[in-house]
Design a protein around this nucleic acid. Sequence first.
DNA 1: TCAATAGTGTCTTTCAGACAGTATATA
DNA 2: TATATACTGTCTGAAAGACACTATTGA
Lengths: 267, 267
Amino acid sequence: MTGPWGRPSVTVDLVIFTVLEGELKVLLIRRGGEPCKGMLALPGGFVDAGNAGLARPPGEPEDQGEDVEAAALRELGEETALDAALLRRHQVHLEQLYTFGRTGRDPRTRVITVAYYALVPPELVPLVQAGDDAAEADWYTVATDVPWSKLAFDHADILSTGLTRIRGKLDHAPIAFALVPSIFTASELRAVHEAIRHQRIDAANFRRRLNRMLEDGLIVPVPEKRPPGGRGGRPATQYRFRAAGRDPGGDRGEGNRGGKPGSGTFC
Amino acid sequence: MTGPWGRPSVTVDLVIFTVLEGELKVLLIRRGGEPCKGMLALPGGFVDAGNAGLARPPGEPEDQGEDVEAAALRELGEETALDAALLRRHQVHLEQLYTFGRTGRDPRTRVITVAYYALVPPELVPLVQAGDDAAEADWYTVATDVPWSKLAFDHADILSTGLTRIRGKLDHAPIAFALVPSIFTASELRAVHEAIRHQRIDAANFRRRLNRMLEDGLIVPVPEKRPPGGRGGRPATQYRFRAAGRDPGGDRGEGNRGGKPGSGTFC
DNA sequence: TCAATAGTGTCTTTCAGACAGTATATA
DNA sequence: TATATACTGTCTGAAAGACACTATTGA
């Protein structure tokens, strides 16, 4: 059997995490249209493939559209209503998770989705609003408020994969820094670890890890201390993440990004 | 701008590793056709998407083709000339690596590739032959024989990602067992670790790790000892990997496989 | 006997978990 | 003062690296 072959649609789906008030949250949208109308789903959208595979005037080169990574970044901006400059400035972490390519995962047509996860610092959360695509977008507490069995498509699988990924990387890569303000205290960083692992961490032991990060130059103390809150307490030393201190992403699950050197000159 | 949207082609590319004579090797093919004719490349091929996106008689349902994971398994069989039963019986490890979706990575048309890596035990290597697709397929020693700068497309990126992945997982997931015979000695397992890390490992310290695996029930001793080779030596205890002992794949980079329960009933 | 490979014992360092105790703020 | 939060010190055990040592074979 030869002849014209079908091509799948390719989408990106986003697992957008944040930590608010000590709880790990994920951004979900309520689907406005079929299929799975009314169910909760991960935000996402199609990867622009230009006019690939379509008939075009002879001699005209194919428009290949946008990079998959660019599509993920674009969707992240659209769904959160944060512009690209803000995302860059706050170093919002965006990383490819896994590609879900089962047949039948979308009943309409063949859809392969490249899932990404993003980590949004709490400073940006107030700026996040329902995007243009999403009828409603809202933060759901992962531990208690996510209706796992009622998520659209295979989004429970995707979310579960995202959760596993950040838990696995938490101790080996500096992802927790992407979920605290740029100036943070030991308690704030610890709260993020606790939220992701959903389990208490001994404050004294965590401080030792933090001290090691200080020695390694991974974080740097900030001169001003944080004044205590309502009913008192000792002021806390504040720290800042030193991005250039080490290869972020580590050696697990990161893979290579799209725009590495060498691009374009592959033959 | 509305109207018909282009769809990308989706391929799977395979980083097929083995360890022979203490060296980590990867299977590369020499490309017979343009583009990149004559260069070395990773084996791979198109994901069958049925008639997705093509015109079809009204009322006829779309044929969505094959799962991406199934395509990877199929390609693995085709490129190595090993049938599916053999691959299953020997528990050949196949795991999704990363999806490469840059525009322009294939000059002909938009191609997004889902890369997988496979671990072939040395027992099967003699059975591997040039597949039907590949003009020539051969094992190349990663440390010395891979012409990194002359690999086709972005395959150097893919191979590099695969190498990083297995090195990262080596100490946290039981992947080394996929690269030794089903009955193996401590030295053989250590040789695999040394080949992947490309660095000597202290035999005594490695044995302690092995003893811990014994205590954990991850491996099981085999009654018969391995008689020494040419010029003598003490006979070696042999072991067998106990697959059911623990969740293989661990918590990093594995993601969910395609055919998990819950499939099909997503709404 | 020697050479070669298998396997043990031990010392040191690093780091995580548990937990007692000290320091500095507000009310 | 009491309370709340920040921070220090110490004990224990698991595990890695370095390395000296013993065990069992073939030639």
